[in-house]
Every structure is written in C-alpha cells, then in structure tokens.
Amino acid sequence: MIAPVDVFGAAGTEGAAVSKLAPGSLVALVRTERGWVLIAKDGKSLGYVAEGSLAPIQ
C-alpha cells in the first residue's frame, strides 16, 4: 500500500468498505478484476483494492 486504502468486499466502490489498510501493509495479490485486485494476508482473503493503490516490494 502506498497510502491508507479502503478494502471492499467486491471489485468496485459500489458497496461499503469492509476494512482499511495502512501504508506499508504487505499483502499478496490473488487476482485482478477490472482494475481491482483481490488481496490476501496470511492466507486469508481481505477483499478488493484499486490496482493503483499498490506498489511492488523493492
């Protein structure tokens, strides 16, 4: 994450955010869907974030 980001239960912003991640949070990318990425942490799916809110690990 490059800034605080809302995590949604489905790809898109139509629904309410289910959680928020802090900058620097490390997550795994599960799949990409229409500009949204399903993310997971510790093997558990967290939800979707906008693709542009992610940054690769250096």
Rank of each mutant, 00 (worst) to 15 (best):
G24C: 07
A10D: 13
V30T: 11
L54Q: 01
I39E: 06
V37N: 05
S25N: 10
T13V: 14
G52C: 02
R34E: 15
A17W: 00
D6Y: 15
Q58H: 11
A55S: 12
Q58P: 15
P23T: 14
P23L: 12
V49N: 03
G12Y: 03
I57L: 10
K41F: 02
T13F: 05
G52V: 09
P23R: 09
I2E: 13
M1Y: 11
G12R: 07
K20G: 09
F8C: 03
R34C: 03
L38H: 04
G35S: 06
Y48N: 03
G9W: 12
A40P: 00
A40N: 01
V27I: 15
P4V: 15
A11P: 11
V27T: 13
E14W: 12
A17L: 03
L26E: 08
S19P: 02
K44T: 12
S53A: 09
G47A: 01
E33Q: 10
A40K: 03
D6N: 15
R34W: 04
R31C: 00
I2Q: 15
A16Q: 09
E14M: 11
Q58Y: 12
Q58I: 13
R34H: 11
P4K: 05
L26Q: 13
K41E: 10
P56T: 07
V27Q: 05
Q58N: 14
L38A: 05
E33G: 02
R34K: 06
A22G: 01
L21W: 10
G43A: 09
S25G: 04
A3F: 13
T13H: 07
G12C: 04
E14S: 07
A3G: 13
A17P: 01
T32A: 05
V18E: 10
T32W: 05
T32V: 14
K41P: 00
E51K: 09
P4W: 04
S53P: 01
L21V: 15
G15P: 02
W36Y: 11
K20V: 15
D6F: 10
